[in-house]
């Protein structure tokens, strides 16, 4: 016995995360999810067709031969047949959170139905995001990616891990100053002090990209991997940062991979792979994420409400405090 389609659709309102593979446009990811859902929803049990009262002729053997009478009977309306009406579900509102460009991969938040309102709330809460960015020294290109047109080639023998980390510390220091100016808080107040102690000081309005934390995960020349915690960024901004780190190191660098490992409360672990973009998995993911998104209050959330769902991954939260100290 198949499930009742409108009932299943009712359970789909909410947010969930998918893992976007590199080389695919975010729009095609969204469209794939939508078509998969539509196909499965339409295959489920639909509403029964309306009944229509018709007076059908019926012959009965009467005393004087055949008598024709009309018998009221309920017949299903053929206009409600699926071949006449078309499939019951033709489109689903699937909204997207912060986007990822074609080359980048990672956690990509999608909202279905009423979840789109939560997406807006998520935008207004100005969550931080984690990225794993991989760079390669010795080359500079026009669009900062590996595949772009090469501008220059350099040596990188002189670069050590210490030199790289020194640059990273400088970057974090300058961003810390920008963070305070864009937070629009009086630094002398108790409120600002409390937030700063908890490591939750961050701008709650639109601002230029801000790096909250950056550290080197791996350094094996010419390749290096950075973990970046930031807000209001674009993927191209992170690539440009790799390029500038290369220049600061008296060399040049290109970005080979941008991978988002966390978007607000959504982590890699709870994101769905391409093979899991089906009704059952999405339903499960939405149910799980509902618990996390309950903290996001409706309307324009104040600071406290928005802080609620952040600390999902322990690593991110700790990393933030550690880097700030």
């Amino acid at each position: 016995m198949a499930q009742f389609a409108p009932g299943v659709f009712r359970t789909l309102h909410g947010l969930f995360a998918v893992y976007k593979p590199p080389g695919v446009h975010w729009k095609s990811v969204r469209d794939t999810v939508e078509t998969n859902l539509l196909k499965e929803l339409n295959a489920l049990k639909q509403r029964p067709p309306r009944q229509q009262i018709r007076f059908l002729p019926a012959g009965t053997e009467g005393s004087n031969g055949l008598e024709v009478t009309r018998v009221p009977s309920a017949v299903p309306v053929l206009a409600d047949h699926v071949l006449v009406k078309g499939p019951a579900f033709t489109h689903i509102r699937v909204g997207t959170g912060h986007r990822l460009d074609i080359q980048s991969s990672g956690v990509f938040v999608l909202g279905i139905g009423h979840g789109n309102k939560l997406l807006k709330d998520m935008y207004n809460s100005h969550f931080t995001r984690d990225y794993t960015v991989r760079g390669m020294l010795g080359k500079a290109t026009e669009d900062f990616t590996e595949l772009g047109k090469t501008i220059e080639k350099t040596t990188y023998d002189h670069i050590t891990r210490e030199k790289l980390e020194r640059i990273l510390a400088v970057i974090q220091g300058t961003n810390q100053k920008a963070l305070i100016t864009h937070s629009h808080l009086d630094l002398q107040s108790q409120e600002a002090y409390d937030l700063a102690v908890q490591g939750k000081l961050r701008p709650m309005v639109k601002s230029p990209p801000i790096i909250l934390g950056i550290r080197c995960l791996e350094f094996s020349p010419p390749e290096f991997t950075l973990e970046i915690q930031c807000m209001h960024e674009t993927q191209q901004y992170l690539r440009k940062m790799i390029h500038e780190i290369g220049l600061e190191l008296r060399s040049s660098a290109v970005c080979t991979q941008v991978r988002r490992s966390r978007d607000g409360p959504f982590t890699v672990d709870c994101s769905l792979l391409r093979t899991q973009w089906d009704l059952g998995s999405i339903q499960g993911a939405i149910r799980e994420c509902r618990a996390q998104t309950e903290g996001v209050s409706r309307g324009n959330p104040d600071r406290e409400a928005a802080e609620g769902p952040i600390p999902g991954p322990s690593r991110g939260a700790e990393g933030e405090g550690e880097l700030r100290a």
Binding site: Q52, L78, A79, L83, V84, P87
Partner: peptide, 24 residues
Amino acid sequence: TLQDYVDQSETLKKLVLLGVDLSK
């Protein structure tokens, strides 16, 4: 749409029962 005529027209009725997708 053809929905308005399906219940009255014998031809359309038979086509639907045959499996023709009128909505398309």
